[in-house]
Amino acid sequence: MNTVSLPADLPVVQAGDPASRTALVLHGGGGPQTVAPLVGHLAAFMHAVAPTHPGWDGTPRPGSITSVADLAAGYLARLLDHGERDVVLVGSSIGGWIALEMAARAAHDERYAGLIGAVIDIDGVGAVVEGEPAADFFALDARGLAEAAWHDPERGYRDPALLTDEQRAVQQANGRTMAVVAGRSMSDPTLLGRLGAVDVAALVVWGESDRIVTPAYGRAVADAVPGARFIEIRGAGHLPHLEAPDATWAAIDPFLSRS
């Protein structure tokens, strides 16, 4: 297994009691603000740790980080260095892919025994599911992205004309980083076949209106992880914790209480 070092000054939001169980919250392509509600909710009973992935929101991306596998290796190494145990991985979109990659890698490496305790994948990309291709994110304009990602597209639509120059620059830089790290297809053809090695409790949460990756895609991912549970969230798209937070918490909290 390769070892990747994340930047020492990587921005990390921490909330909740540091003595509590750690939840590593991993954001998707939209950046760290898209998982802020998850951090706030989990902080009530866990130690929520939410890093900004290298290359997002103006952070530097080392040349050694060119894939989701690199990010997964870097986060595993950092958790190990910090002496963590029984960590809950909570990932949204690309963050869900990172979380699953971390869990699959940890299952094959005795260095990480006991490091990961559970994984929650929220509308994660990354797998190749026959008959259920991910939307071509990079071909979507702002309107198309809102229609694919949100149950209520008007709520998710951001008029590009209203963005400041700074916001536009960040958005474009995030897109370039995502293209490098996730690739045009936002998938790894080996991932689905490797999920059978995951040996921790797993929950797959999916918005019923997600058209980036469909609920059928999500079910296939859940089916590939031994013992994983799949829960569909009504009235939500690709980011159910933003569109239907109460229903999302109702799915997540019982799982965490048992895991």
Rank of each mutant, 00 (worst) to 15 (best):
A201S: 15
G183Q: 06
G29E: 04
V128G: 01
I120C: 09
D246G: 08
P54Y: 12
V221D: 10
I98R: 08
G16S: 07
A19C: 02
A142I: 07
T177C: 14
H41T: 04
E132P: 01
G131I: 06
V129G: 10
L76M: 11
V39F: 07
P133Y: 11
D188H: 03
A73L: 02
G117W: 10
T52D: 02
E110M: 01
P37K: 08
Q33N: 12
T3P: 00
P7W: 11
P240K: 11
S67M: 06
D123Q: 02
L76V: 10
G58R: 08
Y157K: 09
D246C: 00
H241Q: 15
V213T: 15
W206I: 11
V13P: 01
P7G: 09
A77F: 04
A247N: 08
L163K: 10
Q167C: 02
V119T: 15
I94W: 12
A251Q: 07
T3H: 09
A69V: 02
A148P: 05
G40R: 12
G131C: 08
V225D: 03
A69H: 14
L26F: 06
E232S: 15
L145T: 10
R219W: 04
T22M: 14
D165W: 04
R184A: 14
I65Y: 10
V213L: 08
E130G: 01
A149G: 14
L203G: 06
A104H: 00
Q171P: 00
H53D: 10
R184T: 13
A73Q: 11
V39S: 11
D246S: 12
T52V: 15
A148K: 13
P133F: 13
W56P: 01
T59H: 07
L6E: 10
V180K: 00
A19M: 06
A99E: 01
I98M: 13
A134L: 15
P215M: 06
V39D: 05
T22G: 02
R211I: 08
L100H: 09
G40Y: 02
D136S: 13
P62L: 07
H41W: 13
A161L: 09
R184H: 15
